[in-house]
Design a protein around this nucleic acid. Sequence first.
RNA 1: GCCUUGGUGGCGGAAUUGGCAGACGCGCUGGCCUUAGGAGCCAGUGGGGAAACCCGUGAGAGUUCGAAUCUCUCCCAAGGCACCA
Length: 1033
Amino acid sequence: MGKRYNHKKIEKYWQKHWEAKKFWRAQDFSSKKKYYALVEFPYPSGEGLHVGHVRTYTAIDAIARFRRMNGHNVLFPIGFDAFGLPTENFAIKNKIHPRLATRSNIKIFTRQLKSLGLSFDWSRAVDTTDPLYYKWTQWIFLQLYARGLAYRAEIPINWCPNCKTGLANEEVVNGRHERCGTEVVKKLIKQWLIKITKYADRLIDDLRMVDFPERVKTQQINWIGKSEGAEIEFPLAGHFNFVLLHGYTGSAKKNFFPWLKTALEKRGYRVIAPELPHSSRPVEKEQVEFVLKNVKFDENTIILGHSLGGPVAVKAVERLSTRVAGLVFAGGFLEPKFKDHPRPYEKDFVWRFNLKEVRKKVGFVKVLSDRNDYAVPVEQGEKLARGLAGEFFAVESQEPHFTSDQEPAILEHLVPKVKTFTTRADTLFGATYLVLAPENPIVASYLAMRRSGSGVWNLKEAAAYVERAMKKTDISRTAEEREKTGVELKGLRAKHPLTGRTIPIWVADYVLASYGTGAIMAVPAHDERDFVFAKKFKLPILQVIKPPSVDSRDDLPPPSAVGRHDIDLEAECWTGEGTLVNSGKYTGSDSVQARKKIALDLQAQGLGRPAVSYKLRDWIFSRQHYWGEPIPIIYCDHCGAVPVPEKDLPVLLPNVKHYEPTKSGESPLAAIKSFVNTNCPACARPARRETDTMPNWAGSNWYFIRYTDPKNAKEFAARNKLEYWMGQQSLDAAASFRSPKGVGGVDLYNGGMEHTTLHLLYSRFIYKFLFDQKLVPGPEPYAKRTSHGVILGEDGRKMSKSFGNVINPDQVVAEHGADTLRLYEMFLAPFGQMVPWDTRGVLGARRFLDRVWRVYHEKPIRRGGGELSAAADKTERAEELERLLHKTIKKVTADLEDMKFNTAVSALMILINKFDENVAEVTSKQLEIFLLLLAPFAPYLAEELWRNLGNKKSVHLESWPRYEEALIAEQMLKIPVSINGRVRDVILVPADLTQNEIENQALNSPKIEAHIAGKTILRRVYVSGKMINFVVE
RNA sequence: GCCUUGGUGGCGGAAUUGGCAGACGCGCUGGCCUUAGGAGCCAGUGGGGAAACCCGUGAGAGUUCGAAUCUCUCCCAAGGCACCA
């Protein structure tokens, strides 16, 4: 016996050796073709490496090694995605600071990863919690902010009561937090959001450019949920009149005032726009009294206050004895804090207001703030809206501070109306009522008025319903057997835009605030949900679509007795296409055509427009937790939200003792005075830092970019390195590695399906954004995406501590070696497939490696070789061996290109078995080639045996072997002979025989003769070299 | 309900893409060797049958000389979405 296969010794030795020789370093700008292979970097949890990590990393490692041996300059990096809740929770539980927990977990992961013989370039490792890294995560956030893609809004968000944090839509699964399983509740919080919705279309369309699995593409497309339809406006019924109040240095004849007056009058409204006295030196008393004296207010009056006209309007309402319908502010404010110079009138006004009193007298309140306002910070508008329980809108006006001669946003918000979204504009004439989501701001706005007036008169009932609906979790909202509930806003009615009829307005939680406009036109005759609702509340049902007659429809069986020409509105609704009826001038037209026509006609009248809606929502980017990147924003009373200047990045996460989440839902950072208090970068006055942190996905958005230039202190990555690694694809790569349209980016990115609508979507979005800023060289980050299958426990359940079925890779490595573990996981099942762990299977892999070891060290054990020793046999066996070797090269090469690792390993097993049977005949050249093929899978053993064969250079620096087609060709062919499609015999014929000769030989076979005897051959089918078939009768 | 991917021995899975179904591995059966074995070696292993042969890739139909593979209908499983107007 030679020495035993001692995996421990071998693996320890070569791991050290490779590391010392810096084997796996990627070269920037090598003349070789680049190949960027990427695996999702791990989250360094306290649990250590999972056998699932081993599966994906080994697979991509094999590809990386294969590419290197094929002459590529391979970038195969690794890093750690270390911010986030799991570490924070681990830290709190074990009373260890997250920073230390992260450090020790990374250490463990690093040791484990290194033991596996993965050819990562460790010199490029990144850690998202490293300030040198997250400086650029913050920088990217500021780029988004600068482009208006990061904004703050107070919206009801998903809140996890257990983790005490807000969650992204994508982190909520079936109404529960995906990480902890707690039921998610709604909470109204001021949040940072990222406008991923702006990229929705491109995120769908550009999937055409990339090579992703079908299930990944469809999942992303469904998640984005694009549907095309129309927005249709239903003006509120009522004889409204408008009062327009201009501001400081303004005039009813300046800016947008004349335009707005004309536009409103054209719609049939009465408009008064008084010229306020002394507009360049306004005095409160004088202006307010002027207004009260010269304008008549009533319950149908809607007041617009532009700029200083806002405070004037509020003061006027304070003193009114009557109620008014609405109050709209454009660029309004209630305290004299401006971004630029002080105003002369500051002392001529009393900046105190009785907002409660005002609110009682006003039907609805809307506040419009201009994002680019030069004087009034958006925060002032928000404060105003809060004070008056009104709706707030941050808009971009035509000229800053709404000073253009046309300001459509003002007109848009001034006229009270309900905006609905529908995909079935063709059913508009069948809309018999409107439904608002409980969260729709219109609802709150009307309910905020304490007493009835121009508003709702069943206030109590409506308010109670809304309150109940808002408290419900998403689970209970959908769980209650989908029983529809709702309440009518009695007193409010809307005007049908085409018929002019007035229809009731309801509030019901089957309408979602977050989709479309948060309001629908209900067409009970042609929508299942509306139908059920209308039935329950006895609302009118009006048919406007006539289904096609049975004869013209092919989706139904032919009519048995009576054709189905109409629907029975008592029992059902018709949601399909058809011909319009009861639809004015559209009656008789086809529903598909009418859909477009109606949308365009409405647009011409300013009552609607074709519109697209998405299920995708803007990405909630705030987390009220300690262990994340601080959001680099500073709040100043005068300047509003100010980005931290680039030179001050990174905003360091303070090192503190207490990092537990707070009960109030505020970030723990809010309690740290030394962090919060700072000075405004713009005006240097005292200011406060944002205390929310970024979600865990922020750091992983762009890590693959950083790998191209991980140490760069000046840029997030140097342009030329990005271009080299992320630019156009190397075109001569094997077919399956090539991206279809050469989009460039990472050549191969493997990751889990669970990230499809999270990390994968987010990072595609961010990359597109960076591409638009000309910061990265392509539109898509990943040319090809693959997804590994999950490894289950031996019991077929998910591996989990609570099931006690977790396999620790360390133990397998210790017992059988990393090569065994790698080989086992590659052989286990097709890479993309879910599969249970099988401990005995590990032994099978180990036995294979033992056999390899034996073939290279021992005399033949099998006696097969000893008995047959005739010279002719020997030559024959040698030829067969050589043929199998070349077949194996071909097979393993093709399988690696297709990522069919399991069959590649199987081919290696077949070959080593053949070697074992014929040890005496195996040449050293053949032994070498086998090791080259084995190297990507079992790098340690291949290297050891390679050196034992006398090679000085590493097997991993060798070239991948080539096969010769000529050597693969068999000289003798085994041809199955079938009669009527059933195989009856297999004949052995020389490969160069003609069809005729083969047929004759087949017919000579006794078995075939027996089957044909007494029958006639009708047909002969011969597939060259494959088979022969006789059709007989 | 909709979308995606699948369904092949006792188990994980092969099948050059329409041409010998079950490669390779696990397990199992019998034998050899061994103080011992998660070791090694030999033989066998889809079902039925003594054999010839018959039956077999979720079910049923179809196309074809020939179907696990293509077409249609249905069933089941996993994953995703789900009151999305």
